[in-house]
């Protein structure tokens, strides 16, 4: 579905990502693990075409998307949910959803991708259903987190880049996010998730890459990572 090869990215004079390669298969949930500053958010942004300086090759659903504009990438069915949510605070919940709207799409093999509508999404996130006309700026952090995910789903993505969905929200919302990811997976959406919390990633992911100082240090199944205390200790928690 998504394949990143020998990818590098810089910000100003500082190189942030080095020779990064990763794959996400269809219907898979893959966790990109690492400490803060390891390069997770940069990886996400770079895949989405939001980093000015990057090198290497990115293929998505059969298209070469390296060097493409963010909107072109989004129109191919790659959805992006930023860490800091970036809700349009003047727009209501429904209007925010409308900005994300894109026509229904198919995978390159002709299989239709899951289609999302406002109704479906408000049912998936009942909190949002209670406040369809509330401006985004007057919502709590957790509600904004749900809205940013829902907004991306309005584009009927084939694959979603989900940047730290558990960051900075209360445990109750973290649980909701975990459940949502599992729901999405069931619906056939592939997900590349960036995460610091092994326990959260363990609940939802099939495979994991561990990122440190802009390089992939380890990759394997999530179960392996959960067992591998050495890797965790070296690059992640504990």
């Amino acid at each position: 579905m998504l394949s990143v090869e020998n990818f590098g990215a810089s910000y100003g004079a500082a190189q942030i990502l080095y020779d990064l390669s990763l794959q996400v298969g269809r219907g898979e949930v893959v966790a990109l693990m690492g400490r803060n500053g390891a390069g997770k958010t940069t990886t996400m942004k770079a895949i989405m075409g939001l980093m000015a300086q990057s090198t290497g090759k990115i293929r998505f659903d059969g298209h070469d998307i390296s060097g493409k504009q963010p909107y072109e990438i989004a129109r191919l069915g790659l959805g992006f949910t930023p860490e800091d949510r970036r809700i349009f605070s003047d727009l209501t919940v429904l209007e925010n959803l409308d900005i994300g709207r894109q026509p229904p799409r198919k995978f390159s093999d002709g299989v239709p991708a899951p289609v999302w509508t406002e109704e479906k999404l408000l049912a998936l996130f009942p909190n949002l259903g209670e406040m369809p006309n509330r401006p985004g700026g007057r919502m709590s952090g957790g509600e904004q987190q749900m809205l940013t995910v829902a907004r991306t789903l309005m584009g009927n993505p084939l694959l979603m880049l989900l940047d730290e969905p558990s960051e900075g929200v209360a445990p109750l919302i973290v649980e909701l996010m975990a459940n949502t990811i599992l729901e999405l997976k069931k619906a056939g959406v592939s997900i590349l998730l960036s995460e610091q919390n092994v326990h959260f990633a363990e609940l939802v992911s099939d495979r994991a890459y561990v990122l440190e100082k802009g390089q992939i240090q380890w990759n394997g199944t999530m179960a392996e990572l959960a067992e591998n205390i050495d890797i965790q200790r070296a690059y992640l928690t504990v």
Binding site: P171, A178, L203
Partner: peptide
């Protein structure tokens, strides 16, 4: 009000 079921936090 805060912890929910604690599912995601059992280990941490």
């Amino acid at each position: 009000v805060y912890f929910g079921t604690g599912k995601t936090f059992q280990k941490s």
